[in-house]
Design a protein around this nucleic acid. Structure first.
Lengths: 328, 328
DNA sequence: CTGAAAGCGCTTACAG
DNA sequence: CTGAAAGCGCTTACAG
């Protein structure tokens, strides 16, 4: 029960493989009668064209990839959702590639392009701008989105991170906070746009930043929980925290309840992203809304336009906004 | 700047393509000296083997897919995570295929196998057991997991849904509840194992089921919210609800607060899945724990074993347990 | 409107 | 240890 190929179909229909191929590709100049014969033969033989052979002859795979850190992070789940939806509309399927923080995988995933396993790639948080990556960006086969801390010349489809965090921090300051903690999932990095915006707002109000209020490696719900454990031991505790993520904020809220830390009276919290999660906690999370769907959609449209040589999507402002709920 | 192919490498290294191919495939019988020459040529030319051509010659693509409804549902995000992780360990990449409730897409995705776009497929909630699907299951190219309501003969890697929901319901009954609502994301279906288990527990305690307590189309957080809106108008309100999902439970909790419905005093809630979300709400969700990681891992190992003709993973009990928190 | 033949980039018997 | 040649399943000039 080997699978039928184009030759089997041609024989069964009594025509040449050329004609079968033409029918397959909706080429004109095939008579309706011949076409019908061929379609019948295909059905009888349960024929499916071998995409691999088609690709070797130059057809596009219609498969793109997206590199993320963790699919279990709702931010990425929603981003992947938007990308997949847009890709599907154009007949592309999506490969999800998780690095789980392992930078070596990034290189491996990028090589899927020259190996012809993938037409193109969206990278949501590029770590290493190797020459290979830069070339592929120039060729239009890689599009960067969400985050890239590095060379300003490389285009990244994202919100204005610095502005968003500046505005969020300013909102906390305007609410009367001076001692504000800053959390990040990575290490301290002066090129981090969110940290830059945070410092800018502080400077503007002549508030010095207390370095003991900088918290590294605060990632996800567990990161939020660990923050509270540190918080309760602090000599000079902050009155507010820039949590840098709604999952972190949710972890803070949950753990705060266990230690009877009152939110927002003892500690105000500003989230980031505006996940669905943000309105499910008690108190609900005040956060910075990101237009995730737009980011995913525009990234995909840009990549596909590059790949197919069609025109780029219209530029669209990726605006953020502060959603005031109950943690401030 | 066309990409180099195997012939270019052969010329550059002054050997035949056969020898280059052998080097590529770690074939023995290539002298170290020749190998070195070839590796140098590959580097100079930035050569990457064309996987498409390799596949046409019979190599495995090392690409599998998983069909889910929504990646934004955390249950699936965690399942996909486990599948991807296991696939990666065996050198496979994963394609995520979302149906978003559109059954037509399922057929399209299944056809990726005969079209040679995918080696195999994991289907998390098969809708239509077409002859094609059944054949592919027999050939070992499709593995079913999580859910399939239909022919009992088809193997599905999942928890014992009926038992889990029976035990959960029994727990509610033992806590003194008699008026228990049942939510489902679909329509009423007597073959639904969860509903069967629910009814079984009721029957055992001689509690008749009030049909007005059956709620269809209750899906996700919004489904939970809509449940509360119906709940407050009920003549004979339930004292507990089998929410059939932690997201639904979280929606119920959030909306209950707005209508001053006290949880669990006015309404006890039993979730399902045991998402991270379950311990982030206030009150935290009592729920039925599913071993998501095991389900994903075993499904993947089974598929890969079929594909590569190696031995199947050792059978492992997929046990559920009731995690008692604060909503009961 | 139809077909014979070359070729995409590899791998693999076969021969040495 | 090495190479010439056939072939995987298609598409596409070229010729009619």
């Amino acid at each position: 029960m080997n699978m039928a190929n184009i030759e089997d179909v041609a024989k069964k229909a009594g025509v040449s493989v050329t004609t079968v191929s033409r029918t397959l590709n909706n080429h004109p100049y095939v008579s309706k009668k011949t076409k019908d014969k061929i379609y019948r033969a295909m059905e009888d033989l349960e024929y499916y064209p071998n995409n691999v052979a088609q690709q070797l002859r130059g057809k596009r795979k219609k498969m793109i990839g997206v590199i993320i850190s963790y699919i279990t992070n709702p931010f990425f789940a929603y981003l992947v959702d938007a990308i997949e939806k847009t890709a599907l509309e154009y007949g592309y399927t999506l490969v999800v590639l998780q690095t789980r923080g392992n930078q070596k995988l990034e290189k491996l995933y990028v090589e899927l392009i020259p190996k012809k396993q993938l037409d193109g790639l969206i990278i949501t948080n590029l770590e290493n701008a190797t020459p290979q990556v830069i070339n592929l960006i120039k060729e239009g086969k890689i599009v960067l989105c969400n985050r890239y801390i590095g060379n300003k010349d490389i285009p990244v489809i994202s919100i204005d991170e610095e502005k968003a965090s500046y505005e969020g921090t300013k909102y906390l300051i305007d609410s009367g906070h001076k001692n504000i903690a800053f959390c990040t999932g990575n290490v301290k990095n002066t090129h981090d746009y969110r940290f830059k915006g945070f410092l800018k707002a502080l400077n503007e109000s002549n508030i010095p930043f207390d370095n003991s209020l900088f918290f590294e490696y605060i990632l996800g719900v567990d990161g939020g929980r660990s923050f509270i454990k540190k918080f309760i031991g602090l000599e000079n505790p902050p009155t507010a925290v820039f949590s840098n993520g709604d999952e972190v904020a949710a972890g803070i809220i949950s753990e705060a309840r266990k230690y009877s830390v009152k939110i927002p009276d003892d500690l105000a919290i500003l989230g980031f992203d505006d996940h669905p999660l943000a309105s499910l906690t008690n108190p609900e999370i005040t956060t910075i809304h990101q237009p995730i769907t737009d980011i995913g959609e525009i990234s995909t449209l840009t990549l596909l336009a590059n790949l197919e040589g069609t025109s780029l999507p219209e530029p669209k402002e990726l605006e953020t906004s502060i959603i005031i709920r109950e943690t401030t």
